[in-house]
Design a protein around this nucleic acid. Structure first.
Lengths: 202, 202
DNA sequence: TGCATCACTTACCGAGTGGTAAGTCGTTGG
DNA sequence: CCAACGACTTACCACTCGGTAAGTGATGCA
């Protein structure tokens, strides 16, 4: 007998996984609510529409990523160390919860692929992107470089981190679970290498 | 009055763009066929089901990527030059036709997100992945490294290349078209830098 | 000429979609 | 004690989905 607040949290959690694994169009309200033994209308009671449910999921994700970023900001002094810390934390988090990274990728790709007017007003991930770009521009290697270069680098590193965890299922079915497990053990180091190589002058 | 073969080609082309922009679930047969002034059943006449249409699109994409890879193999001798050539060609192609790269990402992410049994028998992109991994393992820096490291590197570089072109729409709406255009002009160089830094020992 | 095949069309179908309306039941506050 | 509210449910709606059945008109071949 969960409390209403807990029910909402549960719905948000299940919706997040469904949206990450199957995308916006592949996710049905009935499937999400049904996984908790509720009806679709219970979900619509907590989140007034599918679009608002998606927005809530994305906002939660954005807040968590921002928290991760702030934690890394406090952990180090130098911009490149802060970036390295953030990307490492993101990788660890992403290996444990691939859904989070899938959502990031999907949200970036699904622009104008969802509703006709879905949320062009506010974008939770913007609050993550902007300080990230600023941080890259604060790096010795990239200071003086333009916004475009920094955005380019940010997109490259984010992508490099997000794809493999999101693609584990597909890769496992083609190359075998053993191979994927092996990648999992080296992926964090690989990512840290890539980040270091890209952020410090060679 | 297009010939039947041309009609099929047109359907394949439109379907490819729809699938890339909106994903499998976001693509409807009626929308694809309607864009050519045909009915949904005309499409089902050429491709017996939605799954087979998707398979045909993916197979075409896989063949094109493979062709790109082979062209790069013939253009150079050293493995790292061949890889650099392929990734550069892929980036150029992707900036011109973002749909192609979106499809690669989507196909990697959408495992078990489509039909219940959708095409686990054959996978066109495997023919691209495998020589790519072998090529990475043939590189001085990565020779001796395991399959897992090479797969990890392949996934990172593929992702770094595929994301930005696929996310241009979303990024443009948040950071402005001008910023995105600016990234487009530097993205190829940025990608070549990343590939070089990652493939040659530092 | 006759007949088959191709490339479609119109007409459906059942299942599933997001969403609305109205009602039920338990809790809470005045 | 009772009205109001929150957290749901059942019932229903209009619509879209992928897919089937049955035709239609043109083309090609015997």
């Amino acid at each position: 007998m969960p409390s209403p607040a807990q029910t909402r949290k549960n719905l948000l959690f299940v919706a997040r996984n469904h949206l990450a694994e199957r995308g916006y169009h592949g996710t049905s309200l009935a499937a999400v609510s049904g996984e908790l033994g509720l009806t679709k209308q219970a979900l619509l009671h907590h989140f007034k529409s599918k679009d608002l449910l998606y927005a809530a999921v994305l906002e939660q994700l954005g807040a968590e990523l921002l928290e991760l970023l702030f934690a890394s900001l406090e952990a180090s002094e130098l911009a490149e160390d802060q970036l390295a810390g953030f990307f490492a934390a993101l990788t660890r988090q992403g290996l444990a919860q691939p859904a989070d990274l899938s959502l990031v990728l999907r949200d970036l790709m699904d622009f104008q692929g969802r509703g006709p007017d879905s949320g062009q007003d506010s974008w939770p991930l913007q609050n993550v992107f902007e300080p990230l770009i600023a941080l890259i521009q604060a790096t010795p290697r990239w200071q003086g470089a333009g916004f475009a270069e920094a955005l380019s680098v940010a997109s490259q590193m984010l992508a490099a981190i997000c794809l493999f965890p999101s693609a584990q299922g597909a890769l496992a079915s083609r190359f075998g679970q053993a191979a994927v497990d092996q990648v999992r053990t080296t992926f964090l180091v690989q990512t840290q290498d890539l980040v270091r190589e890209r952020l410090t002058r060679d």
